[in-house]
């Protein structure tokens, strides 16, 4: 067994928060953003690191990459101490913060790539090959000469990801890469990332609010809440454990006030005087196709949509289940 690419043991990070109390006095409280976190990541894995806002995701990533020193516990990334061996580590990882640019905002992308190649001391002979591959796969060719500040969000994120991959890192860390992107841009990005993983075996650690990202890109999920690890396993396992349901919304041509029961699904609501019906289901019990077929037998379907469970909801259910110590699926 080779050494894990990320090894985290009893990791803790505290922040001092000062809140005004009265006109001049301030109270000083210590808040643990990360509170006793332990996990290993094997080389080549693809892991979704999810949690609500403020759960400690970004703090963890900062400690993994050497931007932040842990208050207690240990981190090894690529076998290195991230803070002490920051520069060595920087050669082996690529990091993208979706909401913060690492490109030079007034330089064209092409120029940014050149600067990054120089920064990473990539051989003059080989780096343009890698750049061309990234430009081609991420469709960056058209705006290589455009200053970064003039790019759309989707274009910029693709540029950021290319920049993070230019030096062919072993580990790619993406913090909310798809936030604010339209459906098409998200899809393109997912296809690209899956392909890169298949081609180069890059390890992927991803924080996101988007369940689709997790489903499409990762084979393991870590859920963090209040700085603690509350789940470590597969995505289907997670949805089973908390009973996170998908919801199918069916619009009918003619109103049917009562469609009756559908096997394996739970009718949540009937709206618009019977024109719109909502069915909740878990993939383990039935499929969207089966529900559609059952409904189609009783009325003519005009349109349908599927609503995915959102991460905030999953985390809330996990949390409630933990404090009650009962079956998470029964949580409201």
């Amino acid at each position: 067994m080779t050494e894990p690419i990320i090894q985290v043991r009893d990791l803790r990070r505290e922040f001092v928060v000062r809140t005004p109390a009265g006109r001049l006095r301030r109270t000083r409280t210590v808040v643990a953003a990360v509170d006793g976190l332990s996990f290993d990541l094997a080389e080549g894995a693809a892991v979704g690191y999810i949690g609500a806002n403020g759960a400690g995701k970004s703090t963890t990533i900062k400690m993994l990459t050497g931007i932040l020193v842990p208050t207690a516990g240990t981190v090894r990334t690529c076998g290195l101490d991230p803070v002490r061996q920051r520069r060595e580590l920087a050669r082996q990882i690529g990091v993208v913060f979706g909401q913060r640019s690492q490109l030079w905002w007034d330089l064209p992308l092409a120029e940014s790539f050149r600067a990054l190649a120089a920064i990473h001391r990539l051989p003059e002979a080989s780096w343009p090959v890698r750049r061309d591959e990234l430009v081609d796969r991420l469709d960056l060719g058209e705006f290589l000469a455009t200053p970064v500040r003039q790019l759309s969000l989707g274009q910029r994120i693709r540029g950021e990801i290319a920049a993070a991959l230019l030096h062919s890192p072993r580990l790619l860390i993406l913090d909310e890469p798809t936030i604010g992107l339209d459906v098409l841009s998200k899809e393109r990005l997912r296809v690209f990332l899956a392909e890169q993983r298949a081609l180069h075996g890059t390890t992927l650690l991803l924080t996101t609010h988007d369940m689709d990202d997790v489903q499409r890109l990762t084979d393991r999920v870590l859920v963090v809440d209040h700085g603690r690890l509350v789940y470590d396993g597969t995505l289907p396992g997670l949805t089973t454990q908390v009973g996170a349901e998908r919801v199918m919304v069916v619009d009918l041509v003619e109103p049917v006030p009562d469609l009756g029961t559908v096997d394996g699904a739970r009718r949540v609501a009937v709206e618009s005087d019977g024109l719109r019906h909502r069915f909740a289901f878990t993939p383990e019990r039935t499929t969207a196709g089966a529900i559609l077929e059952a409904v189609g037998r009783r009325g003519q379907v005009r349109d349908l949509a599927i609503e995915e469970p959102d991460i905030e909801d999953v985390v809330r259910r996990l949390y409630l289940a933990q404090i009650r110590g009962d079956d998470p699926a029964a949580a409201p």
Binding site: G66, R87, A90, R100, S101, Q102
Partner: peptide
């Protein structure tokens, strides 16, 4: 404020 320093920290130079 703009996170430029974090970007510096993620690069292999002083």
């Amino acid at each position: 404020r703009e996170g430029t320093l974090d970007a510096f920290l993620l690069r292999p130079l002083p």
